[in-house]
């Protein structure tokens, strides 16, 4: 009875358990290829990552109209686009919230925003799930490798949501400097407080 499991069986068990401890719903990690999506922009047009052939990458940010943290970061997200779109990394904003739970995040409400970048509705919430986004704002930097987009940074914009003038560390800008220089970001993953994504009621 004390006999150890035969090695191949042990491998198989380990393999199985690796699936169990890492469910798909964890979303992307830095280094993963991001799957493309097709989401409706507030101008009614469908937007995919593949559309912009000139993009060297994207700053994808899950955000919304209603969350106080998203509101606090709105002008900083606009500034990110102003700074990095000319350098080939435009912002793509995605609202993942279910308007049935957060009426202020409906497609109609989204249309009140006049951004210089796409503001997309993730109606099925599948994109937010694929990315592993949990909150707004939740930011992902993607870098082009051929036709693929590789997740190169995940997390916070900076270290002070309340007051942009008191920011000491601009996490995403530091990462962008390295990513654009062809290096991996030395801080590639950060955490921030945000509003829970308003998932559809099951």
């Amino acid at each position: 009875m004390k006999k150890l499991l035969p090695f191949p069986l042990l491998c198989f068990v380990l393999l199985l358990s690796s699936f169990i401890v890492r469910p798909e719903s964890n979303g992307y990690q830095v280094g993963d290829k991001a799957a493309d999506f097709k989401l409706k922009n507030i101008d009614g047009k469908m937007v995919s990552l593949a559309d912009n052939k000139a993009a060297k990458g994207y700053i994808v940010v899950f955000t919304c109209n209603t969350c106080p943290y998203a509101k606090a970061y709105e002008s900083r997200i606009i500034a990110l686009n102003a700074k990095y779109a000319p350098q080939g990394f435009p912002v793509v904003a995605i609202n993942p919230n279910d308007p049935a739970v957060a009426p202020g995040d409906s497609f109609e409400a989204m249309k009140t925003k006049k951004y210089a970048f796409p503001y997309l509705l993730d109606e099925s919430q599948q994109v937010a799930k694929a990315y592993g986004a949990t909150r707004t704002p939740h930011l992902y930097v993607l870098k082009r490798q051929g036709n693929d987009f590789v997740v190169s940074y995940i997390g916070a914009i900076d270290d002070n949501s309340e007051d942009a003038t008191l920011v000491k560390t601009k996490y995403v800008e530091n990462a962008m400097t390295e990513i654009m220089a062809g290096k991996p970001a030395s801080t590639s993953s950060t955490k921030a407080i945000g509003c829970t994504i308003k998932w559809k009621r099951a």
Binding site: G155, A156, A192, I193
Partner: peptide, 20 residues
């Protein structure tokens, strides 16, 4: 605390930062 990245992980490694 102004920078959640400095303490969130110490509460729980799995916590991504959404509340509650």
């Amino acid at each position: 605390e102004s920078d959640p990245n400095s303490w969130l992980e110490q509460v729980d490694a799995k916590w991504s930062g959404s509340i509650p």
